[in-house]
């Protein structure tokens, strides 16, 4: 008796989970049906298309500047993420290994920087970037992205380095290695797990960034993918098929990465959140 009520309860829980998963898939489903229907198809978006129509993807690629934007996003995301890892790991080393009161204060200030909302400094940041001729430049965007994602990276690297045993570094010191040798030959190679976390957190966030990138890179030739979708969508509000197609093109790289690296994505996000 007890066993069967338990089984019934599990079945109910299973149904609830299935429902939750379906709800999450509804917007993707509607995006797919909309993207594959021509504009004069007045059938509901809930109904699958009768034949696959690729015109919307061509419109998105030709008019929406989507390929160019994907290229810009790849460039900016890769360079920024590499810099976040490198500068983050470097900065974390003294903060993990040299616990002076100065360095404790520095750590505290860096954690505090996580709280600064990007839009709260829009006016002074945009003004400064304008004076530096950094608006619509890759380097300006990269500098802002790296700065925005460094605090969390430093925090994660510091916590990880503190958990490493000191003895290897001490042995290397005795053998006459200097700080840079120790950092590059001993510390960096063992940082792989935390680096995976930092790459995932920063990479996804920089790829998806919209609020600042939309202002800093406004020219179509330098626009990144999220602002490109945003402006394409507002221009095409009557042509939802093309907007849906553009969204799908932008979402595919993230989906493919997620499919293959799902375990790391979820683990990495938990590690990032729990700090």
């Amino acid at each position: 008796m007890h066993l069967s009520t338990n089984r019934l309860f599990n079945a109910m829980v299973g149904v609830v989970l299935l429902l939750a998963a379906l709800i999450q898939l509804v917007p993707f489903y509607v995006a797919v049906t909309t993207a594959f229907k021509p504009i004069d198809d007045r059938s509901s978006q809930l109904v699958p298309p009768s034949a696959l129509f690729f015109g919307n993807f061509l419109t998105a690629l030709n008019q929406g500047n989507i390929l160019r934007a994907v290229g810009n996003s790849v460039l900016i995301t890769v360079i920024s993420t590499v810099l976040v890892c490198l500068l983050g790991a470097m900065a974390a080393y003294p903060l993990a290994r040299r616990l002076t009161s100065l360095n404790k204060t520095v750590s505290l200030v860096i954690v505090g920087l996580i709280m600064v909302p990007p839009l709260s400094i829009l006016v002074p940041l945009y003004t400064m970037m304008n004076q530096l001729h950094a608006i619509n430049s890759y380097w300006g965007e990269i500098a802002v992205m790296v700065t925005g994602h460094l605090p969390l990276a430093i925090f994660l690297y510091t916590a990880f380095m503190r958990s490493l045993p000191l003895s290897i570094e001490e042995a290397a010191t005795v053998d006459g290695a200097n700080t840079l040798q120790i950092l590059f030959r001993i510390i960096f190679p063992v940082l792989k797990p935390v680096t995976a976390t930092v790459i995932i957190l920063s990479g996804v966030s920089i790829w998806n960034e919209f609020s600042l990138s939309g202002y800093l890179l406004a020219k179509p030739s330098v626009q990144t993918i999220a602002p490109a979708i945003g402006s394409f969508f507002s221009q095409q509000s009557s042509n939802l098929g093309a907007a849906a197609a553009a969204s799908l093109i932008a979402v595919v790289p993230v989906l493919v990465a997620y499919l293959f690296l799902q375990k790391y994505f979820i683990k990495g996000m938990v590690a990032g959140a729990e700090k």
Partner: peptide
């Protein structure tokens, strides 16, 4: 301990990785 719970977890988590701009566009279709 349910069958298929890993798949459910992966799907429910999926939108976290998608740009809010794209999620907004997709929900606009609804």
């Amino acid at each position: 301990p349910l069958r298929g719970r890993n798949a459910a977890r992966a799907v429910i988590y999926l939108p976290v990785l998608v740009s809010p701009v794209i999620m907004g566009t997709m929900y606009y279709l609804l």
